[in-house]
Amino acid sequence: MQIQRHIERHQLPYYLKVFNRITDKPMGYIGNVSLDGLMLISQLPMLVNARFDMRLKIPGRDGQVHHIDFYATCQWSREDVTPGSYDSGFSLVAPPAEYVEMVDALRHYFSFRPLQASA
């Protein structure tokens, strides 16, 4: 019997940096991600109910940096247990196909899969 596990959220701190798309300044790092939204870990609290223009810079296999631009609305923001860090939850407004592909790729990468028996 083959069992496939499903992970709802993926812990990604300090791997995927989020930038303000307008200013190109870093906003923080993705703490976890789903198709519906993300959690941002930042040095400053985020304004709740505000919409942000965000950008992810993803290194490609071709050596080029690819941008994933999207809008997200901050649903909540609170101080993290780590002093000087804040966690903020964002819902995405019409996530682009590139974001959906990234979430699917991360889900596949971080999923537990049974080892294939070799014959």
Results as ranks from 00 to 15, higher is better:
residue 58 I to A: 01
residue 42 S to P: 00
residue 77 S to Q: 09
residue 22 I to S: 12
residue 43 Q to T: 14
residue 55 R to N: 10
residue 63 G to D: 08
residue 52 F to Q: 11
residue 21 R to G: 05
residue 40 L to I: 09
residue 52 F to M: 10
residue 60 G to P: 02
residue 73 T to I: 14
residue 68 I to M: 04
residue 24 D to P: 00
residue 51 R to V: 14
residue 15 Y to L: 12
residue 17 K to T: 15
residue 50 A to K: 14
residue 61 R to E: 14
residue 33 V to Q: 03
residue 35 L to T: 11
residue 42 S to G: 08
residue 61 R to P: 02
residue 42 S to T: 02
residue 28 G to M: 07
residue 20 N to D: 15
residue 45 P to F: 04
residue 68 I to T: 04
residue 67 H to A: 15
residue 50 A to V: 13
residue 45 P to E: 05
residue 35 L to V: 12
residue 39 M to E: 06
residue 28 G to E: 03
residue 66 H to V: 02
residue 56 L to S: 08
residue 32 N to I: 03
residue 60 G to L: 06
residue 26 P to N: 08
residue 27 M to F: 04
residue 46 M to Q: 12
residue 39 M to G: 00
residue 68 I to N: 01
residue 25 K to I: 07
residue 67 H to W: 09
residue 25 K to D: 13
residue 39 M to D: 00
residue 61 R to L: 13
residue 57 K to S: 13
residue 65 V to N: 04
residue 36 D to G: 14
residue 34 S to M: 04
residue 30 I to N: 05
residue 62 D to A: 11
residue 26 P to H: 04
residue 36 D to L: 06
residue 41 I to N: 03
residue 64 Q to C: 10
residue 59 P to D: 07
residue 56 L to E: 06
residue 27 M to D: 06
residue 41 I to W: 01
residue 69 D to T: 06
residue 31 G to Y: 12
residue 40 L to C: 05
residue 54 M to I: 11
residue 63 G to H: 07
residue 17 K to M: 14
residue 39 M to N: 01
residue 72 A to K: 00
residue 22 I to K: 12
residue 63 G to Q: 04
residue 59 P to T: 10
residue 40 L to V: 06
residue 47 L to H: 07
residue 67 H to Y: 14
residue 72 A to N: 02
residue 72 A to P: 03
residue 32 N to K: 07
residue 31 G to C: 10
residue 75 Q to L: 15
residue 15 Y to T: 09
residue 55 R to P: 00
residue 60 G to M: 05
residue 18 V to F: 07
residue 16 L to K: 00
residue 39 M to Y: 02
residue 15 Y to P: 00
residue 54 M to A: 11
residue 35 L to P: 05
residue 37 G to P: 00
residue 72 A to W: 00
residue 23 T to E: 07
residue 76 W to S: 13
residue 15 Y to E: 13
residue 31 G to M: 12
residue 48 V to T: 15
residue 59 P to Y: 10
residue 74 C to T: 00
residue 16 L to H: 12
residue 71 Y to Q: 15
residue 13 P to S: 10
residue 23 T to A: 05
residue 32 N to Q: 11
residue 17 K to I: 13
residue 38 L to K: 01
residue 74 C to V: 06
residue 45 P to W: 04
residue 46 M to C: 13
residue 50 A to D: 13
residue 46 M to V: 03
residue 14 Y to F: 13
residue 56 L to P: 08
residue 18 V to M: 09
